[in-house]
Design a binder for these strands. Sequence first.
DNA 1: TACGATTATATGTCTAGACATATAAGTCAA
DNA 2: TTGACTTATATGTCTAGACATATAATCGTA
Lengths: 242, 242
Amino acid sequence: MSLATDAADKPTLYKRIRADIEKRILTGEWPPGHRIPFEHELVARYGCSRMTVNKALSELAQADLIERRRRAGSFVRRPQHMSAVLKIADIRAEITALGRAYGYELIHRKLRTATTADRDRLGVKKAGKVVAITCRHSADNVPFAVEDRLIDLSSVPDAATADFSREPPGSWLLHHVPWTEAEHTISAIVADDRTADALGIAVGAPCLVIDRFTWRSARTITTVRLLYPGDSHRLVARFKGG
Amino acid sequence: MSLATDAADKPTLYKRIRADIEKRILTGEWPPGHRIPFEHELVARYGCSRMTVNKALSELAQADLIERRRRAGSFVRRPQHMSAVLKIADIRAEITALGRAYGYELIHRKLRTATTADRDRLGVKKAGKVVAITCRHSADNVPFAVEDRLIDLSSVPDAATADFSREPPGSWLLHHVPWTEAEHTISAIVADDRTADALGIAVGAPCLVIDRFTWRSARTITTVRLLYPGDSHRLVARFKGG
DNA sequence: TACGATTATATGTCTAGACATATAAGTCAA
DNA sequence: TTGACTTATATGTCTAGACATATAATCGTA
């Protein structure tokens, strides 16, 4: 036998405590409502100081796995809803991660003073300059998604001169406008003429729609609508929950 | 003036430190790559012990807002992808939260030995007993979603005798099978005859589909397909990211 | 100049205490 | 039985240290 190639790697004590408890919860050994041992009991069991078990329990509480109540103790939580982390990768990264050839094509780009419709989409009152972009992403030369985007130049002035004929606006923004907040809305539509044409699918075929609105500290950055062929594309999210 | 009804509420020191730093990152004052002050500098600034600033920084690192490197310091992270937390509530809770009347109707329920198709859907090898359920959720008497579910009775034996004519299987499972893991797949289809009929929409209308596969420590629990009218229903996810 | 060894330092983990605070549980009176 | 008061206790936060460890920076050598 190869001796101890993966043995070593001793986790720190507080991580071991956290993992021990997490395992009992996830296997169902400690069901929701079960009171887990008091801190002083865990201190005795593991022979460490209270700060160490406190760190383990605090992290479990932060992850919503347990609930801590003063004077009462710590209890396994009953999950309230299915929760999923949806990782919406940069489309280029998403496609190359699948081992397919990424293609990008700028269909339309226009710099203009915001129209009423633009201001509505961006949720702004004043009429500043915006860039409107329509582009297409493809995988192995098959249309993967069409993107319809509006960027608020008063928040991202550099976007006026960026070269979106080579770099997709999503990637550009990801690297130039850090740490934003976003709201996503996912819905389904059937392809109209224009969409069917852009995606190379039949009129009336289902499409998955992601509308994303992005801002940073109350300033609108961009809004985008992504259209995917609905029967071929899938958003996958995995998480633990109830 | 009412004096100090909402004033007080002084947050603890480590929370204040964490909030201070988070604010600077989120406003862009400290952009990605920026080195935030060393622990000993924060100790001096806030006049507290290192454990206190360490707790604040550890939580920021856990939230992926900063990256900590030994000997080098702590740095504002550059987010790699848009990430969203998708809260998929229990449908009853979701509808009542919207202030609408929830309606539930069991369309079909069958207890049977798993067919080949069933085993395929559940991802199990052996042919045990399963419950197949089809039901409909409505809001203000308008169809909201149809649900097609399969429950593995070898994992959830109690489901054989549960009364799904009154309680939706999703709610029942949420309260009887705690802390599971799940994988979600979101896609779009157009309504076929049966779906159009069940949802009260036109054949060919878009539908949003959520397929969910649920298990606990390697044991299959249930698999479900939820169909929503795609042009009216929206999944909303909000999060901060890049 | 390039590479290898040494050193300095910021973070990672941990301790043995401390006081604060919310609250479950017990006590007592109306 | 109910309500108000008291008490005990588990968690929440914090301190002033400690040693471990990874690694950036420096220094010395080939």
